[in-house]
């Protein structure tokens, strides 16, 4: 025994089954997660899965999901990969910045920064 509380690590292990990598195609830290439209949730979802589905009814970046869950990013990614595999969330592939930031968004960002 090391004397350290093993509780958190065991819990993290339980969330991911010990996996370090998410299922399927990898996704960016700021990829947008959206809860899939079908309102029928499986009854056996763990609380973290329910929390993601509730949060991501509004499009939410992966990093924010991690912040909301208070979990490390790679654990969050495993959870999101599972939910995507089960068709419960969609994870959007980010567009290249050059295409994503048009003149209107550029102006919005500048105005937003200046108002801080």
């Amino acid at each position: 025994m090391t004397g350290e509380d093993p509780g958190p690590l065991i819990r993290l292990y339980g969330l991911t089954g010990g996996r370090a990598r998410p299922q399927g195609e990898s996704f960016d830290l700021v990829a947008i997660v959206v809860t899939a439209g079908d309102p029928a949730e499986p009854a056996d979802l763990i609380p973290e899965h329910r929390a993601v589905l509730a949060l991501c009814r509004r499009p939410t970046p992966v990093a924010d999901v991690a912040a909301h869950l208070r979990l490390p990013l790679n654990i969050t990614r495993v959870i999101l990969g599972d939910l995507r595999r089960d068709g419960l969330v969609r994870i959007e592939r980010p567009r290249p910045m050059a295409q994503a930031i048009d003149e209107r968004i550029y102006r919005e960002v500048l105005d937003g920064l200046r108002s801080l």
């Binding site: 960016d28 947008i32 959206v34 809860t35 499009p59 930031i101 968004i105």
Partner: peptide
């Protein structure tokens, strides 16, 4: 889940 403009997170 339709949004008017796609959500964008700038890194």
């Amino acid at each position: 889940t339709a949004t008017v403009a796609p959500a964008l997170a700038i890194k």
